[in-house]
Design a protein around this nucleic acid. Structure first.
Lengths: 244, 244
DNA sequence: CGAAACGTTGAATGGTTTCAACAAGAGTGG
DNA sequence: CCACTCTTGTTGAAACCATTCAACGTTTCG
Protein backbone atom coordinates (compact mmCIF):
# COMPACT_ATOMS: atom_id res chain seq x y z
CA UNK A 1 0.00 0.00 0.00
CA UNK A 2 1.33 3.40 -0.94
CA UNK A 3 2.02 5.72 1.99
CA UNK A 4 -0.23 8.76 1.93
CA UNK A 5 1.26 12.20 2.51
CA UNK A 6 1.75 12.70 6.25
CA UNK A 7 -1.00 14.59 8.04
CA UNK A 8 -0.15 18.06 9.37
CA UNK A 9 -0.28 16.73 12.93
CA UNK A 10 2.21 14.03 12.00
CA UNK A 11 4.54 16.64 10.56
CA UNK A 12 4.23 18.75 13.65
CA UNK A 13 4.85 15.95 16.15
CA UNK A 14 7.71 14.60 14.06
CA UNK A 15 9.53 17.85 14.66
CA UNK A 16 9.41 17.01 18.35
CA UNK A 17 9.68 13.23 18.53
CA UNK A 18 11.13 10.79 16.02
CA UNK A 19 8.12 8.50 15.68
CA UNK A 20 8.37 4.78 15.00
CA UNK A 21 6.35 2.89 12.40
CA UNK A 22 4.02 1.63 15.09
CA UNK A 23 3.50 5.11 16.49
CA UNK A 24 2.89 6.53 13.04
CA UNK A 25 0.22 3.93 12.38
CA UNK A 26 -1.55 4.63 15.68
CA UNK A 27 -1.48 8.29 14.76
CA UNK A 28 -2.87 7.52 11.32
CA UNK A 29 -5.69 5.50 12.88
CA UNK A 30 -6.63 8.52 15.01
CA UNK A 31 -7.35 10.33 11.77
CA UNK A 32 -10.00 7.79 10.77
CA UNK A 33 -13.28 9.60 11.36
CA UNK A 34 -13.12 12.49 8.97
CA UNK A 35 -15.67 15.25 9.18
CA UNK A 36 -16.10 18.68 7.64
CA UNK A 37 -17.59 21.89 9.01
CA UNK A 38 -18.74 25.01 7.28
CA UNK A 39 -17.24 28.45 7.72
CA UNK A 40 -18.97 30.56 10.32
CA UNK A 41 -21.02 27.79 11.92
CA UNK A 42 -20.14 27.16 15.53
CA UNK A 43 -18.76 23.74 16.37
CA UNK A 44 -19.34 23.86 20.12
CA UNK A 45 -21.11 26.44 22.17
CA UNK A 46 -19.91 28.15 25.26
CA UNK A 47 -20.48 25.89 28.24
CA UNK A 48 -21.45 22.85 26.26
CA UNK A 49 -19.85 19.59 27.35
CA UNK A 50 -18.95 17.44 24.40
CA UNK A 51 -16.79 14.36 24.69
CA UNK A 52 -15.18 14.63 21.26
CA UNK A 53 -12.02 16.42 20.23
CA UNK A 54 -10.82 17.07 16.70
CA UNK A 55 -7.56 17.08 14.84
CA UNK A 56 -7.66 19.85 12.29
CA UNK A 57 -6.36 18.67 8.92
CA UNK A 58 -7.31 21.56 6.63
CA UNK A 59 -8.56 25.09 7.21
CA UNK A 60 -8.44 27.47 10.14
CA UNK A 61 -10.60 27.69 13.26
CA UNK A 62 -10.78 30.30 15.97
CA UNK A 63 -11.67 29.72 19.61
CA UNK A 64 -13.27 32.68 21.30
CA UNK A 65 -15.38 33.92 24.12
CA UNK A 66 -18.34 36.27 23.80
CA UNK A 67 -18.96 38.80 26.54
CA UNK A 68 -22.32 39.91 27.87
CA UNK A 69 -21.96 43.25 26.05
CA UNK A 70 -21.53 41.43 22.73
CA UNK A 71 -17.82 42.04 22.21
CA UNK A 72 -15.77 39.03 21.26
CA UNK A 73 -12.28 38.02 22.31
CA UNK A 74 -10.54 35.43 20.19
CA UNK A 75 -8.31 33.37 22.46
CA UNK A 76 -6.46 31.42 19.81
CA UNK A 77 -6.50 30.24 16.24
CA UNK A 78 -6.11 26.63 15.21
CA UNK A 79 -4.29 25.81 12.00
CA UNK A 80 -3.80 22.42 10.33
CA UNK A 81 -2.14 19.97 12.68
CA UNK A 82 -3.64 21.54 15.78
CA UNK A 83 -5.97 19.90 18.25
CA UNK A 84 -9.38 21.32 18.93
CA UNK A 85 -11.04 20.84 22.28
CA UNK A 86 -8.38 18.48 23.56
CA UNK A 87 -8.80 20.02 26.98
CA UNK A 88 -12.53 19.41 27.14
CA UNK A 89 -11.94 15.73 26.45
CA UNK A 90 -9.32 15.15 29.09
CA UNK A 91 -10.69 17.46 31.70
CA UNK A 92 -14.10 19.05 31.62
CA UNK A 93 -16.46 21.17 29.58
CA UNK A 94 -14.64 23.83 27.67
CA UNK A 95 -15.98 27.27 28.33
CA UNK A 96 -15.36 28.81 24.99
CA UNK A 97 -16.67 28.36 21.48
CA UNK A 98 -15.10 27.23 18.21
CA UNK A 99 -15.86 28.72 14.84
CA UNK A 100 -14.34 27.66 11.54
CA UNK A 101 -12.82 30.68 9.81
CA UNK A 102 -13.33 28.84 6.52
CA UNK A 103 -14.66 25.45 5.50
CA UNK A 104 -12.55 22.92 7.30
CA UNK A 105 -11.65 19.24 7.39
CA UNK A 106 -11.12 17.60 10.73
CA UNK A 107 -10.76 14.14 12.24
CA UNK A 108 -13.01 13.37 15.16
CA UNK A 109 -11.20 11.77 18.09
CA UNK A 110 -13.14 9.95 20.76
CA UNK A 111 -11.92 10.03 24.32
CA UNK A 112 -11.57 6.26 24.35
CA UNK A 113 -9.48 6.22 21.15
CA UNK A 114 -7.19 8.84 22.58
CA UNK A 115 -6.74 7.02 25.86
CA UNK A 116 -6.07 3.77 24.00
CA UNK A 117 -3.44 5.50 21.91
CA UNK A 118 -1.87 6.89 25.06
CA UNK A 119 -1.52 3.51 26.74
CA UNK A 120 -0.31 1.78 23.58
CA UNK A 121 2.35 4.35 22.74
CA UNK A 122 3.57 6.43 25.66
CA UNK A 123 5.93 8.41 23.46
CA UNK A 124 3.02 9.50 21.33
CA UNK A 125 1.29 10.59 24.53
CA UNK A 126 4.32 12.65 25.42
CA UNK A 127 4.30 14.27 22.01
CA UNK A 128 0.61 15.15 22.21
CA UNK A 129 1.02 16.57 25.69
CA UNK A 130 3.92 18.61 24.33
CA UNK A 131 1.57 20.05 21.73
CA UNK A 132 -1.05 20.83 24.38
CA UNK A 133 1.51 22.51 26.56
CA UNK A 134 2.73 24.55 23.59
CA UNK A 135 -0.84 25.69 22.94
CA UNK A 136 -1.02 26.92 26.47
CA UNK A 137 2.28 28.77 26.18
CA UNK A 138 0.80 30.52 23.14
CA UNK A 139 -2.18 31.69 25.16
CA UNK A 140 0.16 33.09 27.80
CA UNK A 141 2.21 34.85 25.15
CA UNK A 142 -1.01 36.22 23.73
CA UNK A 143 -1.89 37.58 27.15
CA UNK A 144 1.51 39.25 27.43
CA UNK A 145 1.08 40.78 23.99
CA UNK A 146 -2.31 42.28 24.70
CA UNK A 147 -1.22 43.51 28.10
CA UNK A 148 2.17 44.94 27.29
CA UNK A 149 2.67 45.56 23.57
CA UNK A 150 1.31 48.45 21.53
CA UNK A 151 -0.85 47.79 18.50
CA UNK A 152 2.00 47.70 15.97
CA UNK A 153 4.19 45.30 17.94
CA UNK A 154 1.16 43.20 18.77
CA UNK A 155 0.25 42.80 15.12
CA UNK A 156 3.84 42.09 14.11
CA UNK A 157 4.18 39.49 16.84
CA UNK A 158 0.95 37.84 15.87
CA UNK A 159 1.87 37.58 12.20
CA UNK A 160 5.28 36.18 13.09
CA UNK A 161 3.85 33.56 15.41
CA UNK A 162 1.55 32.38 12.66
CA UNK A 163 4.48 32.23 10.25
CA UNK A 164 6.37 29.96 12.65
CA UNK A 165 3.42 27.73 13.33
CA UNK A 166 2.53 27.34 9.69
CA UNK A 167 6.12 26.71 8.64
CA UNK A 168 6.17 23.78 11.07
CA UNK A 169 3.43 22.05 9.06
CA UNK A 170 4.75 23.11 5.69
CA UNK A 171 2.18 25.80 4.97
CA UNK A 172 4.44 28.81 4.76
CA UNK A 173 7.87 30.21 5.38
CA UNK A 174 9.68 33.34 6.52
CA UNK A 175 8.59 34.87 3.22
CA UNK A 176 4.86 34.58 3.87
CA UNK A 177 1.80 32.38 3.95
CA UNK A 178 -1.85 32.14 2.96
CA UNK A 179 -4.09 33.61 5.66
CA UNK A 180 -7.89 33.45 5.48
CA UNK A 181 -8.51 35.89 8.33
CA UNK A 182 -10.43 39.13 7.94
CA UNK A 183 -9.40 42.34 9.64
CA UNK A 184 -12.29 41.71 12.03
CA UNK A 185 -10.69 38.46 13.11
CA UNK A 186 -7.44 40.30 13.76
CA UNK A 187 -9.28 42.96 15.75
CA UNK A 188 -11.07 40.42 17.95
CA UNK A 189 -7.86 38.51 18.51
CA UNK A 190 -5.63 41.47 19.27
CA UNK A 191 -8.07 43.46 21.40
CA UNK A 192 -8.26 46.32 18.88
CA UNK A 193 -11.00 47.88 16.80
CA UNK A 194 -11.27 46.79 13.19
CA UNK A 195 -10.62 50.36 12.09
CA UNK A 196 -7.37 50.50 13.98
CA UNK A 197 -6.31 47.13 12.63
CA UNK A 198 -6.64 48.60 9.18
CA UNK A 199 -4.44 51.55 10.08
CA UNK A 200 -1.80 49.41 11.73
CA UNK A 201 -1.64 47.13 8.71
CA UNK A 202 -1.12 50.19 6.58
CA UNK A 203 1.73 51.37 8.78
CA UNK A 204 3.45 48.00 8.59
CA UNK A 205 2.98 47.91 4.84
CA UNK A 206 4.30 51.44 4.32
CA UNK A 207 7.27 50.69 6.57
CA UNK A 208 8.12 47.90 4.15
CA UNK A 209 7.72 45.15 6.74
CA UNK A 210 4.65 43.04 5.82
CA UNK A 211 1.71 43.12 3.49
CA UNK A 212 -1.60 41.60 4.52
CA UNK A 213 -3.83 41.51 1.46
CA UNK A 214 -6.20 39.20 -0.38
CA UNK A 215 -5.74 36.34 2.04
CA UNK A 216 -1.99 36.43 1.72
CA UNK A 217 0.63 37.58 4.21
CA UNK A 218 3.86 38.63 2.53
CA UNK A 219 6.83 39.33 4.75
CA UNK A 220 9.17 41.83 3.15
CA UNK A 221 11.58 42.33 6.02
CA UNK A 222 11.65 39.41 8.43
CA UNK A 223 14.48 40.79 10.54
CA UNK A 224 12.80 44.18 10.83
CA UNK A 225 9.51 42.60 11.91
CA UNK A 226 11.24 40.50 14.56
CA UNK A 227 12.92 43.61 15.94
CA UNK A 228 9.70 45.60 16.02
CA UNK A 229 7.79 42.81 17.74
CA UNK A 230 10.67 41.74 19.98
CA UNK A 231 9.72 38.28 18.81
CA UNK A 232 11.47 35.49 20.69
CA UNK A 233 10.12 32.15 19.46
CA UNK A 234 11.44 30.22 22.47
CA UNK A 235 7.92 29.72 23.80
CA UNK A 236 7.01 27.83 20.64
CA UNK A 237 9.63 25.24 21.56
CA UNK A 238 10.24 24.14 18.00
CA UNK A 239 14.01 24.07 18.08
CA UNK A 240 14.23 20.47 16.96
CA UNK A 241 13.57 16.91 18.07
CA UNK A 242 13.89 16.45 21.80
CA UNK A 243 13.21 12.73 21.99
CA UNK A 244 14.86 10.27 19.65
CA UNK B 1 -3.79 11.22 66.60
CA UNK B 2 -5.69 14.46 66.40
CA UNK B 3 -6.61 15.60 62.90
CA UNK B 4 -4.85 18.83 61.95
CA UNK B 5 -6.80 21.63 60.28
CA UNK B 6 -7.28 20.76 56.62
CA UNK B 7 -4.78 22.36 54.24
CA UNK B 8 -6.11 25.00 51.85
CA UNK B 9 -5.69 22.58 48.95
CA UNK B 10 -7.77 20.01 50.78
CA UNK B 11 -10.49 22.57 51.34
CA UNK B 12 -10.45 23.53 47.70
CA UNK B 13 -10.57 19.99 46.32
CA UNK B 14 -13.24 19.00 48.81
CA UNK B 15 -15.51 21.54 47.20
CA UNK B 16 -15.18 19.56 44.01
CA UNK B 17 -14.85 15.93 45.10
CA UNK B 18 -16.00 14.29 48.31
CA UNK B 19 -12.68 12.72 49.32
CA UNK B 20 -12.38 9.44 51.23
CA UNK B 21 -10.17 8.88 54.26
CA UNK B 22 -7.59 7.16 52.06
CA UNK B 23 -7.57 10.01 49.57
CA UNK B 24 -7.26 12.56 52.32
CA UNK B 25 -4.26 10.79 53.73
CA UNK B 26 -2.53 10.59 50.34
CA UNK B 27 -3.18 14.30 49.99
CA UNK B 28 -1.77 14.95 53.46
CA UNK B 29 1.36 12.98 52.58
CA UNK B 30 1.89 15.20 49.54
CA UNK B 31 2.25 18.10 51.98
CA UNK B 32 5.22 16.47 53.69
CA UNK B 33 8.21 18.46 52.42
CA UNK B 34 7.57 21.92 53.73
CA UNK B 35 9.67 24.82 52.53
CA UNK B 36 9.51 28.58 52.80
CA UNK B 37 10.51 31.34 50.41
CA UNK B 38 11.14 35.02 50.95
CA UNK B 39 9.14 37.83 49.40
CA UNK B 40 10.60 39.20 46.22
CA UNK B 41 13.08 36.37 45.59
CA UNK B 42 12.39 34.43 42.42
CA UNK B 43 11.58 30.76 42.83
CA UNK B 44 12.20 29.72 39.23
CA UNK B 45 13.59 31.68 36.36
CA UNK B 46 12.21 32.06 32.90
CA UNK B 47 13.19 29.05 30.83
CA UNK B 48 14.55 27.03 33.70
CA UNK B 49 13.50 23.39 33.82
CA UNK B 50 12.87 22.27 37.35
CA UNK B 51 11.29 18.96 38.18
CA UNK B 52 9.54 20.10 41.35
CA UNK B 53 6.13 21.62 41.84
CA UNK B 54 4.76 23.22 44.97
CA UNK B 55 1.50 23.37 46.81
CA UNK B 56 1.11 26.82 48.29
CA UNK B 57 -0.07 26.67 51.89
CA UNK B 58 0.36 30.25 53.05
CA UNK B 59 1.07 33.53 51.28
CA UNK B 60 0.67 34.75 47.71
CA UNK B 61 2.84 34.23 44.65
CA UNK B 62 2.68 35.77 41.21
CA UNK B 63 3.73 34.14 37.95
CA UNK B 64 4.90 36.57 35.33
CA UNK B 65 6.88 37.10 32.19
CA UNK B 66 9.43 39.85 31.62
CA UNK B 67 9.73 41.37 28.18
CA UNK B 68 12.93 42.47 26.48
CA UNK B 69 11.99 46.11 27.06
CA UNK B 70 11.75 45.51 30.79
CA UNK B 71 7.98 45.67 31.19
CA UNK B 72 6.39 42.87 33.15
CA UNK B 73 3.12 41.05 32.60
CA UNK B 74 1.75 39.09 35.52
CA UNK B 75 -0.08 36.06 34.16
CA UNK B 76 -1.67 34.87 37.34
CA UNK B 77 -1.52 34.98 41.10
CA UNK B 78 -1.41 31.90 43.29
CA UNK B 79 -3.14 31.95 46.65
CA UNK B 80 -3.15 29.29 49.38
CA UNK B 81 -4.36 25.96 48.04
CA UNK B 82 -3.04 26.61 44.54
CA UNK B 83 -0.42 24.59 42.69
CA UNK B 84 2.75 26.22 41.49
CA UNK B 85 4.55 24.90 38.46
CA UNK B 86 2.32 21.87 38.11
CA UNK B 87 2.57 22.20 34.36
CA UNK B 88 6.34 22.18 34.27
CA UNK B 89 6.34 18.91 36.19
CA UNK B 90 3.91 17.06 33.99
CA UNK B 91 4.99 18.52 30.70
CA UNK B 92 8.12 20.57 30.16
CA UNK B 93 10.05 23.58 31.32
CA UNK B 94 7.81 26.43 32.29
CA UNK B 95 8.57 29.59 30.45
CA UNK B 96 7.66 32.05 33.11
CA UNK B 97 8.94 33.03 36.51
CA UNK B 98 7.48 32.84 40.02
CA UNK B 99 7.92 35.45 42.66
CA UNK B 100 6.49 35.37 46.17
CA UNK B 101 4.48 38.51 46.83
CA UNK B 102 5.18 38.00 50.52
CA UNK B 103 7.00 35.39 52.59
CA UNK B 104 5.34 32.09 51.81
CA UNK B 105 5.02 28.52 52.99
CA UNK B 106 4.84 25.77 50.39
CA UNK B 107 5.04 22.00 50.16
CA UNK B 108 7.44 20.64 47.58
CA UNK B 109 5.96 17.91 45.42
CA UNK B 110 8.21 15.60 43.44
CA UNK B 111 7.09 14.29 40.10
CA UNK B 112 7.31 10.72 41.34
CA UNK B 113 5.18 11.45 44.43
CA UNK B 114 2.55 13.06 42.27
CA UNK B 115 2.44 10.17 39.80
CA UNK B 116 2.24 7.68 42.66
CA UNK B 117 -0.66 9.60 44.14
CA UNK B 118 -2.36 9.60 40.76
CA UNK B 119 -2.14 5.83 40.31
CA UNK B 120 -3.15 5.11 43.89
CA UNK B 121 -6.17 7.38 43.92
CA UNK B 122 -7.64 8.14 40.51
CA UNK B 123 -10.32 10.35 42.01
CA UNK B 124 -7.66 12.54 43.54
CA UNK B 125 -6.04 12.74 40.11
CA UNK B 126 -9.34 13.90 38.67
CA UNK B 127 -9.63 16.54 41.35
CA UNK B 128 -6.12 17.86 40.77
CA UNK B 129 -6.67 17.96 37.02
CA UNK B 130 -9.88 19.87 37.70
CA UNK B 131 -7.83 22.43 39.58
CA UNK B 132 -5.29 22.66 36.76
CA UNK B 133 -8.04 23.10 34.22
CA UNK B 134 -9.60 25.79 36.35
CA UNK B 135 -6.28 27.62 36.49
CA UNK B 136 -6.20 27.60 32.75
CA UNK B 137 -9.73 28.92 32.48
CA UNK B 138 -8.63 31.79 34.72
CA UNK B 139 -5.81 32.65 32.33
CA UNK B 140 -8.27 32.70 29.45
CA UNK B 141 -10.64 34.92 31.40
CA UNK B 142 -7.70 37.17 32.20
CA UNK B 143 -6.96 37.42 28.48
CA UNK B 144 -10.55 38.34 27.76
CA UNK B 145 -10.46 40.98 30.45
CA UNK B 146 -7.32 42.68 29.20
CA UNK B 147 -8.51 42.50 25.61
CA UNK B 148 -12.10 43.59 25.98
CA UNK B 149 -12.79 45.30 29.29
CA UNK B 150 -11.95 48.87 30.20
CA UNK B 151 -9.79 49.63 33.21
CA UNK B 152 -12.64 49.96 35.69
CA UNK B 153 -14.38 46.73 34.73
CA UNK B 154 -11.04 44.96 34.57
CA UNK B 155 -10.18 45.97 38.10
CA UNK B 156 -13.62 45.10 39.41
CA UNK B 157 -13.51 41.72 37.73
CA UNK B 158 -10.08 41.00 39.10
CA UNK B 159 -11.04 41.87 42.66
CA UNK B 160 -14.17 39.74 42.39
CA UNK B 161 -12.29 36.74 41.06
CA UNK B 162 -9.91 36.93 43.98
CA UNK B 163 -12.83 37.15 46.39
CA UNK B 164 -14.30 33.94 44.95
CA UNK B 165 -11.01 32.09 44.97
CA UNK B 166 -10.17 33.11 48.50
CA UNK B 167 -13.62 32.33 49.81
CA UNK B 168 -13.18 28.77 48.52
CA UNK B 169 -10.24 28.25 50.91
CA UNK B 170 -11.80 30.18 53.77
CA UNK B 171 -9.69 33.32 53.46
CA UNK B 172 -12.40 35.83 52.70
CA UNK B 173 -15.99 36.42 51.75
CA UNK B 174 -18.24 38.66 49.70
CA UNK B 175 -17.47 41.36 52.24
CA UNK B 176 -13.72 41.44 51.61
CA UNK B 177 -10.35 39.84 52.19
CA UNK B 178 -6.73 40.51 53.10
CA UNK B 179 -4.69 41.31 50.00
CA UNK B 180 -0.91 41.81 50.11
CA UNK B 181 -0.60 43.22 46.58
CA UNK B 182 0.77 46.67 45.81
CA UNK B 183 -0.71 48.91 43.14
CA UNK B 184 2.30 47.96 41.00
CA UNK B 185 1.24 44.33 41.14
CA UNK B 186 -2.22 45.30 40.01
CA UNK B 187 -0.77 47.39 37.18
CA UNK B 188 1.44 44.57 35.93
CA UNK B 189 -1.42 42.10 36.13
CA UNK B 190 -4.05 44.26 34.47
CA UNK B 191 -1.91 45.76 31.73
CA UNK B 192 -2.23 49.29 33.12
CA UNK B 193 0.17 51.89 34.47
CA UNK B 194 0.52 52.13 38.23
CA UNK B 195 -0.72 55.71 38.07
CA UNK B 196 -3.90 54.69 36.35
CA UNK B 197 -4.46 51.85 38.79
CA UNK B 198 -4.44 54.44 41.52
CA UNK B 199 -7.05 56.53 39.73
CA UNK B 200 -9.28 53.56 38.99
CA UNK B 201 -9.15 52.45 42.61
CA UNK B 202 -10.20 55.93 43.62
CA UNK B 203 -13.15 55.84 41.21
CA UNK B 204 -14.32 52.50 42.58
CA UNK B 205 -13.93 53.76 46.12
CA UNK B 206 -15.79 57.01 45.45
CA UNK B 207 -18.56 55.09 43.70
CA UNK B 208 -19.02 53.19 46.96
CA UNK B 209 -18.13 49.83 45.44
CA UNK B 210 -14.79 48.66 46.91
CA UNK B 211 -11.95 49.97 48.99
CA UNK B 212 -8.41 48.73 48.45
CA UNK B 213 -6.26 50.00 51.28
CA UNK B 214 -3.60 48.86 53.75
CA UNK B 215 -3.57 45.31 52.45
CA UNK B 216 -7.30 44.95 52.81
CA UNK B 217 -10.00 44.76 50.16
CA UNK B 218 -13.38 45.81 51.49
CA UNK B 219 -16.38 45.23 49.24
CA UNK B 220 -19.12 47.75 49.98
CA UNK B 221 -21.51 46.88 47.18
CA UNK B 222 -21.07 43.35 45.89
CA UNK B 223 -24.03 43.47 43.53
CA UNK B 224 -22.86 46.77 42.04
CA UNK B 225 -19.37 45.44 41.48
CA UNK B 226 -20.69 42.34 39.74
CA UNK B 227 -22.79 44.50 37.45
CA UNK B 228 -19.92 46.82 36.60
CA UNK B 229 -17.54 43.94 35.87
CA UNK B 230 -20.18 41.77 34.21
CA UNK B 231 -18.74 39.08 36.44
CA UNK B 232 -19.99 35.59 35.66
CA UNK B 233 -18.16 33.12 37.92
CA UNK B 234 -19.11 30.11 35.77
CA UNK B 235 -15.51 29.73 34.58
CA UNK B 236 -14.40 29.20 38.18
CA UNK B 237 -16.58 26.09 38.26
CA UNK B 238 -17.12 26.17 41.98
CA UNK B 239 -20.82 25.51 42.03
CA UNK B 240 -20.49 22.51 44.28
CA UNK B 241 -19.25 18.92 44.40
CA UNK B 242 -19.45 17.17 41.05
CA UNK B 243 -18.20 13.76 42.13
CA UNK B 244 -19.54 12.01 45.18
C1' DC C 1 -29.75 45.24 -9.44
C1' DG C 2 -29.56 45.36 -4.44
C1' DA C 3 -27.73 43.60 -0.33
C1' DA C 4 -24.12 42.08 2.50
C1' DA C 5 -19.35 41.57 3.87
C1' DC C 6 -15.01 43.53 3.90
C1' DG C 7 -11.79 47.20 3.42
C1' DT C 8 -10.41 52.20 3.66
C1' DT C 9 -10.06 56.92 5.27
C1' DG C 10 -11.01 61.40 8.00
C1' DA C 11 -12.36 63.91 12.09
C1' DA C 12 -13.60 64.14 16.77
C1' DT C 13 -13.53 62.11 21.17
C1' DG C 14 -11.74 59.86 25.09
C1' DG C 15 -9.29 56.51 27.83
C1' DT C 16 -4.62 55.77 29.30
C1' DT C 17 0.15 56.89 29.59
C1' DT C 18 3.87 59.72 30.64
C1' DC C 19 6.13 63.17 33.19
C1' DA C 20 6.59 65.53 37.28
C1' DA C 21 6.04 66.54 41.91
C1' DC C 22 4.93 65.53 46.59
C1' DA C 23 3.40 62.85 50.94
C1' DA C 24 3.82 59.08 54.23
C1' DG C 25 5.84 55.10 56.31
C1' DA C 26 9.60 51.55 56.87
C1' DG C 27 14.10 50.41 57.21
C1' DT C 28 19.13 51.73 57.55
C1' DG C 29 23.28 53.37 59.26
C1' DG C 30 25.82 57.09 61.36
C1' DC D 1 17.87 59.83 67.60
C1' DC D 2 18.08 61.77 63.24
C1' DA D 3 19.03 62.13 58.53
C1' DC D 4 18.72 59.31 54.56
C1' DT D 5 16.93 56.33 51.22
C1' DC D 6 13.55 53.31 49.31
C1' DT D 7 9.03 51.84 48.54
C1' DT D 8 4.39 52.85 48.01
C1' DG D 9 0.70 55.82 47.32
C1' DT D 10 -1.39 60.20 45.41
C1' DT D 11 -2.53 63.99 42.28
C1' DG D 12 -2.27 67.36 38.16
C1' DA D 13 -1.29 68.53 33.37
C1' DA D 14 0.06 67.44 28.82
C1' DA D 15 0.60 64.20 25.23
C1' DC D 16 -0.73 60.19 22.79
C1' DC D 17 -2.66 56.00 21.28
C1' DA D 18 -6.77 53.93 20.07
C1' DT D 19 -11.85 54.19 19.63
C1' DT D 20 -16.00 55.77 17.81
C1' DC D 21 -18.76 57.70 14.33
C1' DA D 22 -19.44 58.43 9.72
C1' DA D 23 -18.90 58.00 4.98
C1' DC D 24 -17.57 55.69 0.95
C1' DG D 25 -15.32 52.06 -2.28
C1' DT D 26 -14.97 47.33 -3.70
C1' DT D 27 -16.19 42.76 -4.35
C1' DT D 28 -19.19 38.91 -4.05
C1' DC D 29 -23.37 36.73 -4.38
C1' DG D 30 -28.29 35.75 -4.75
Amino acid sequence: MATAAPSPLTRKLSAFVALSEAELSVLARLHGRRRSFLAGQDMAHQGQSGQAAYILSAGWVCSYKIQPDGTRQIVDFQVPGDFLGLRSVLLRASDHSFEPVMDILAAEVLTSDLLDAFTQTPRLATAILWAASRDEAMVVEHLVGIGRRDAEARMAHFLLELASRLALVGLGSKEGYACPLTQYHLADALGLSAVHVNRVLRQLREAGLVTFRDGQVTIHDYRGLVDLAEFDPAYLDQTGPLLR
